[in-house]
């Protein structure tokens, strides 16, 4: 099932095009990592899909139906940039307000407790502590707890890792994975922290200057991010010739680093090069990271 499909979605601010004819598809179960530089249009797109701003042109559909309306809104939740919380209330009071907004009925207390437990905020269930005294990580998790009240099928998180300490990042990552695996929630997550995003995302969309330049699955990214061997040598040019002479063709030289993209047996290479008087000071095997992939895609612009 398609959770979100945008069709030529565009947003202009006067003469500036913030989002330019974006056609994006997010399928059920995806954790869609939305990647782009500052001002690329990530937040603007999330705001359009959440109904906070109106598109200049184009359209989008949620759950294979129309755009955001009362019916689809009950299945989505969003945390856009900063957490949207009543800072003068406690966590439970915030949940109660949210329950009123959504229109929940029945025994809500159990639901509130379940939501707080799920996001790892069980310590604030009985607490009279106002939200203004929470850490940023706690506020982020409480924001997610609020969105969980409506039992959403689709969550939009804009920079959820921003400002979190390492412990907070790990806990946010685990929460996203758990919600995806256990509750089947589909995610659209924008983030600058690409390495962190790569640990949770199953699909990626790369946006640059408002244009969605590539959509790729995790599997495709792995297959494109070829494994390669980096050797640091004292004579790079001679190393290049030596490697070519033994049939290794996919080689790049960067200073004293020689990158070999062919599959090789390291011991044979070391032996062959040392016989030619070339000294190897370091050898490492690397995969192309998501950051390298992103930079390559941007052509060094980002």
């Amino acid at each position: 099932m398609e959770i979100l499909r945008t069709k030529d979605l565009t947003k202009n601010y006067k003469s500036q095009i913030a989002v330019n004819k974006v056609n994006m598809v997010i399928n059920e179960g995806d954790i869609y990592g939305f990647i782009g530089e500052n001002g690329a249009g990530k937040t603007t797109l999330i705001r359009m899909v959440s109904g906070l701003i109106k598109p200049t042109s184009g359209d989008y559909s949620l759950f294979e139906k129309g755009g955001l309306n009362h019916s689809s809104a009950s299945h989505i939740g969003a945390v856009v940039e900063t957490p949207s919380l009543y800072l003068n209330m406690t966590a439970m009071e915030n949940l109660k307000t949210q329950a009123y907004i959504i229109g929940l009925k029945g025994d809500l207390n159990k639901r509130f407790i379940d939501s707080l437990n799920l996001v790892g905020l069980s310590e604030v269930i009985e607490s009279k502590k106002k939200v203004k005294n929470f850490s940023l990580g706690m506020k982020q998790r409480l924001s997610i707890a609020l969105t969980l009240l409506s039992d959403p099928k689709f969550l939009l998180l804009d920079e959820p890792m921003n400002g979190l300490d390492p412990e907070g990042i790990v806990s946010m990552r685990n929460l996203i994975i758990n919600l995806n695996e256990e509750r089947g929630i589909t995610f659209l997550i924008s983030s600058h922290i690409l390495e962190e995003l790569s640990r949770v995302a199953t699909r990626y969309g790369f946006i640059h200057k408002g244009v969605l330049i590539k959509e790729i699955s995790k599997e495709e990214l792995i297959s494109q991010g070829k494994k390669h061997t980096v050797m640091v040598v004292d004579k790079p040019e001679e190393t290049l010739q030596a490697l070519k002479s033994i049939g290794i063709e996919q080689v790049e030289v960067e200073g004293h680093a020689v990158k070999v993209y062919d599959e090789i047996i390291i011991s044979d290479i070391v032996l062959s090069l040392s016989q030619k008087g070339i000294k190897i000071t370091n050898i490492i095997q690397k995969e192309k990271s998501i950051e390298e992939f992103y930079l390559e895609l941007m052509g060094g612009e980002a």
Binding site: S50, L52, L68, S72, S74, V80, T82, L85, S150
Partner: peptide, 10 residues
């Protein structure tokens, strides 16, 4: 920013 929650929920 709580106005967002009202809008997001339709």
């Amino acid at each position: 920013n709580t106005i967002r929650q009202k809008t997001i929920h339709g």
